[in-house]
């Protein structure tokens, strides 16, 4: 192998930056979507209605036992055919690769967010819930105005840690040739056969970003108001 050639990095920076932006966009939207869906799932799991609890926990356990790559493949290749079969339209219903990736991540990550949020809800003392009930709030109102705000406060560090995992998971769009940060780097790496430079750089950037955020999370955890 010839010596390390930094120039290939320099020239490909704009393209890599576009890839990184896509990774961050995916992470952010999937986080928002995942937390929203995860909250509903968690509320369903704690709703006290047996069938709803069962269904929600089936969903969570199912997505926690299959690989993310499998979810991506299902969405990418097969769901359009399934939808077509269900709606009996002439053409397969298409969702583009970007939407596919996004929906897969939301479906998959909401199972993980659900478990975090469930623990958060359970950490709120039951007196709060009873008090809210006594005030005449219904289940959704109790959650919305009393339980969730407190739960989110305690869960914030864990939610952020899960988001770091999500950010790392977005690199798996590589399998459907997505141009995220890793995808952009590998396209250049393979075209110019500059694997060493590109993959080392990618690892370094992922490390720095994830490390900084995880250090931030640690500081957050040490703030008195976040101590559980």
């Amino acid at each position: 192998m010839e010596s390390f050639d930094g120039s290939v990095l320099w020239f490909s920076l704009p393209y890599l930056w576009k890839g990184l932006q896509y990774s961050l966009f995916l992470t952010f939207t999937a986080m928002v979507g995942g937390i929203i869906c995860g909250s509903f799932l968690a509320m369903a799991r704690l709703s006290g209605i047996r069938i709803i609890e069962r269904l929600a926990s089936l969903y969570v356990n199912f997505f926690r036992s299959i690989p993310l790559i499998l979810v991506i493949f299902w969405l990418y290749f097969l769901v359009p055919l399934l939808l077509q079969g269900m709606t009996k339209t002439e053409q397969p219903i298409t969702i583009g690769p970007d939407q596919t990736a996004l929906i897969s991540f939301i479906l998959f990550e909401s199972a993980y967010y659900c478990e975090i949020i469930r623990a958060g809800i359970q950490s709120v003392p039951s007196g709060q819930r009873n008090a809210a009930k006594a005030l005449g709030l219904n289940y959704l109102q109790q959650m919305r105005y009393v339980i969730m705000p407190q739960a989110f406060h305690t869960m914030l560090p864990v939610l952020l840690t899960q988001t770091i995992v999500l950010f790392q998971d977005t690199s798996l769009v590589y399998v459907i040739s997505g141009t995220d940060f890793l995808g952009a780097a590998s396209k250049i790496a393979q075209r110019d056969s500059r694997l060493v430079e590109m993959y080392t750089f990618v690892a370094l950037v992922y490390f720095i970003l994830c490390y900084l955020v995880s250090q931030g999370v640690k500081r957050l955890q040490h703030q008195p108001s976040f101590k559980v």
């Binding site: 790392q168 690892a203 490390y211």
Partner: peptide
């Protein structure tokens, strides 16, 4: 090892 995605780690070991 926690802060680098698994797929990137595999590429490092395999290709780099």
């Amino acid at each position: 090892f926690r802060n680098i995605p698994l797929i990137v780690q595999m590429f490092l070991w395999f290709f780099v």
